[in-house]
């Protein structure tokens, strides 16, 4: 084992650990800017850190759900599956057809989120899961089609080999679908049907408290960061650090704008929209046939 191996390991660990404060800080900035858009003062940008520390310090509630092993274990699994998505973005996992594993991991993370609601002891949790299950049929398939489109268009076999920049202009249909799917995955209005607080209270998270809720919150923030990074990777693939930062801010503001300026769709309306997104993504995929071959 040479020194490079150990240096690599340390770099990976440090960059993976860095993702946690970055995700939390990003959420803090999001909340602060959203508050500004609402004409409120809003919380400090470090509020997600305080919230997380508070949740991890708390004792667990006496919810009947804690009798079940699944109820205790699934939040941890959900967090791990979400956190592991960064291994693909940071280029730690690289092999031929690694994008299939990426799709699998994203679906696994979403499936574990659904399981969270089903194992909790609350009708609202079950309802949230039911809604997510219905929508997942569309958005995960559409996401798969989108990722396949980018890979096939680039004519490579691994995520790390995607070297074409500004695919946004070459595959506009797929890129738009990808943005919409990001809104659904990160639960941002108008597609935050799964999290509709006035309709189904805390949705999947209703019954969770303390550390479990802390893990769920952290996973949500990580997911938000991951999908922004994924969008930049596929849509723009910037070369320099400056353009990366500019594009990161741009994508962040697009999501913020959507959250601040729209109302929430009902489940059936979201489903109808996702069917359209699915069809568009398939059309985008078919279009590659005429572009490439």
């Amino acid at each position: 084992m040479n020194i490079h191996f150990y240096t690599n390991i340390v770099t990976i660990i440090i960059s993976m650990l860095m993702m946690l404060p970055v995700a939390l800080l990003l959420d803090g900035i999001f909340r602060k800017l959203l508050a500004k858009a609402h004409n409120r003062v809003g919380p400090s940008i470090f509020q997600p850190f305080y919230d997380l520390f508070k949740l991890f310090e708390k004792k667990r509630s006496d919810s009947a759900g804690y009798k079940s092993l699944f109820f205790r274990v699934v939040p941890v699994l959900y967090f791990l599956s979400t956190y592991s998505l960064f291994l693909f973005i940071l280029g730690v996992i690289q092999f031929q057809f690694d994008f299939i594993l990426l799709i699998y991991m994203i679906v696994l993370s979403s499936a574990l989120y659904i399981l969270l609601g089903l194992v909790s002891n609350s009708p609202f949790g079950v309802f949230g899961s039911m809604r997510d299950m219905l929508l997942m049929i569309c958005y995960e398939v559409a996401l798969t089609v989108c990722i396949f489109s980018f890979i096939v268009y680039s004519d490579v076999l691994s995520l790390s080999q995607v070297n074409q920049s500004w695919l946004l202009f070459k595959l506009p249909l797929v890129s738009i679908c990808m943005v919409v799917i990001t809104l659904v995955e990160t639960r941002i209005t108008p597609f935050d049907t799964t999290d509709a607080e006035p309709e189904i209270m805390g949705s999947v998270e209703t019954e969770f408290s303390g550390r479990s809720l802390g893990l769920l919150e952290l996973s949500r923030q990580l997911r938000f960061l991951f999908f922004i990074l994924l969008l930049i990777r596929f849509l723009f693939n910037p070369v320099s650090a400056v353009s990366f930062i500019i594009l990161f801010i741009l994508m962040f503001f697009i999501l913020l704008l959507s959250e601040a300026t729209s109302a929430r769709f009902r489940t059936d309306q979201t489903f109808n929209w996702l069917i359209i997104v699915l069809m568009l993504s398939v059309m985008g995929f078919i279009r590659i046939h005429f572009l490439v071959w």
Partner: peptide, 16 residues
């Protein structure tokens, strides 16, 4: 009413 269907910005503006 706006809060009920997730239009938080309008909700905050009206309260302001």
């Amino acid at each position: 009413m706006f809060h009920e269907f997730g239009f938080e910005t309008m909700f905050q503006y009206l309260l302001r």
